[in-house]
Amino acid sequence: MGLIKETLALMRKDLLLEWRGKYALSGILLYVFSTVFIIYTSFEEVEPKAWNTLFWVVLLFASISAIVKSFVQENSPRQLYYYSLTNPIAVILSKTLYNIGLLMVVSLLTWGCFALMAGNAVKDNSQFFLALFLGSVGLSITFTFVAAIAGKADHSATLQAIMSFPLVLPILLTLIRLSANALRLEQDSSISDDIAILAGIDLLSLGMALLLFPFLWRE
């Protein structure tokens, strides 16, 4: 029970920090908005295939910049304070859950921007939002864990990008396939396999993150 309580308390703290600062979410919103604006002005008419690819690329970069600050926004004396106070599992769990929520907001905003400016190419809404959900979960687990490593270095943003891009490749390839199906770019009956693969990847990386994070925390 203590674990859940700690996790919830830490999440509440992150949410409060975000609410007081507000710079992260507004910054990402601005990033997404300007990127989609550039896409719209250069393409004018975005074909579904390009829509699919661009959507996930924009979302990928938006989520990286949303998550990279997870472990660097608070100074190290305060980190030491948490270390003496809490269970490391609660720390990684709270950050991951918070980032899942953040990424879902970011992905819905990205989708909104695309729909507003480049048109809504989604044909099968439930499948697309399922892809968004599973994608947010998978990306935030991996990115949060890598942010915990990269946060220890001086140039954490560069390290974050080069370490996490190859790692999220399996998730991203499956997501693009899944959403290509939701956009009716291709018809595939074995879509449930893709969903199972995504869920499997999410669970696997969550398990690894929970297992390995205590070693990172011990500094």
Binding site: L167, D194, G200
Partner: peptide, 15 residues
Amino acid sequence: FAFVALIPLIYVVPR
């Protein structure tokens, strides 16, 4: 972490 995270590629890429 990276080694384990890459294992799913075996299932993903052939599809």
